[in-house]
Simulated assay, not measured.
Amino acid sequence: MAKVLTFNRGRVPLLISMPHPGTQLTPAVEAGMVAAGLELADTDWHIPRLYEFAAELGASTLAAEYSRYVIDLNRPADDKPLYTTATTGLYPETLFDGAPLYREGLTPSANERARYLAEIWTPYHQTIVDELARMKAEFGYALLFDAHSIRSLIPHLFEGRLPDLNLGTNAGASCDPSLAEALVATCGEARDYSHVLNGRFKGGHITRHYGQPEQHIHAVQLELSQRCYMEEAPPYPYVEDRAQQLQTVLRNLLQAMLSWGQQRYGR
């Protein structure tokens, strides 16, 4: 197995998790996929580049290297569905538009998938566990920001055009309400962007599982509309001027999160 993640430890109690920017495929997945799948259209394109500025804020960052088509790091290990609406599972077998991901009879074997769970999913989540524990031991609390992006129009998953900034807090269960209020207020100041709290995207497994505000671990997911920083058609290029404008908003969101923590916990 090649390198499965990139982790950089910061100096403040904020971890930015990026589970879906990876593009690496295993031989079994690549050999079985349909031609459309090889475009990796459902990737959270360029997310590590978009959040490069986070190092200046002192945040820790964690990014996956393998594609979500191999194993989805934002799904639980038991593959229990997170949404009642259309979605994909731990081992995706359809594209976001509902079309099959694999040619008939060519899905990876159960043994292959067990290896992906052990060698890709588990190290990513162990890194989250370890870093949140370190932050809590050092600061008394930890903040987790789960960073995602998606095409703005996917009729199979949601109606109409997706808002630009989609905050998710598991319907209020994954962080203190006052933190969610601070982030919504920050989005409201970004007048060029639409936003919603707990709309179509309420937070996946990472937000739901690790967000434990009663234990002083606060988790928030942000699902970005990709049209805000890139072109949504192959080869999915990064658009620098759009990205720079969006980075100002993202920086403000992360700073708001850190400021909230300092005010709440005094450090």
Results as ranks from 00 to 15, higher is better:
P177S: 11
L162D: 06
N111F: 08
N166E: 01
S152A: 15
S174Q: 04
H148D: 04
D164T: 06
V184K: 11
V184E: 12
L132C: 04
G160I: 11
I120H: 10
D192L: 15
E131T: 12
P163R: 09
P123L: 11
L117E: 09
N170Q: 15
L167H: 03
L117A: 13
A114D: 14
F158L: 12
A190L: 01
H148I: 07
L165M: 03
P177C: 10
P177I: 12
A185W: 05
H156N: 15
K136S: 07
A147G: 08
G140W: 13
Y141R: 11
I154H: 03
I120D: 04
Y124E: 09
S149T: 02
V129L: 13
F158M: 08
L165C: 00
C187W: 00
G140N: 13
L144M: 13
I128W: 04
E159A: 15
F158E: 07
G140T: 13
L132Q: 01
E131S: 09
A114L: 14
T186F: 03
P177D: 04
I128A: 04
E138P: 00
E189Y: 11
G168Q: 01
T127R: 15
A133P: 01
A190Q: 03
L153N: 14
G172N: 02
I150G: 00
A110N: 07
L144K: 07
L143Y: 05
A133L: 00
H156A: 15
E119D: 12
Y124G: 05
R115H: 11
A147V: 07
T122S: 14
I150P: 00
A190T: 03
C187E: 06
S174K: 06
T169C: 08
I128L: 13
I128M: 01
Y141L: 10
C187M: 03
L117T: 14
L153T: 13
L179S: 04
A137V: 03
P123Y: 11
L153E: 13
A137W: 06
Y141M: 09
V129C: 08
R161Q: 15
R161S: 09
N166H: 10
R151M: 10
A137T: 13
H125C: 05
T127C: 15
G160T: 09
L179K: 03
C175M: 12
G160F: 12
Y141A: 12
L132A: 02
N111G: 10
S194V: 10
L162E: 06
Y141Q: 09
S194M: 05
A133C: 01
R115I: 06
D176T: 08
E138V: 13
L179N: 02
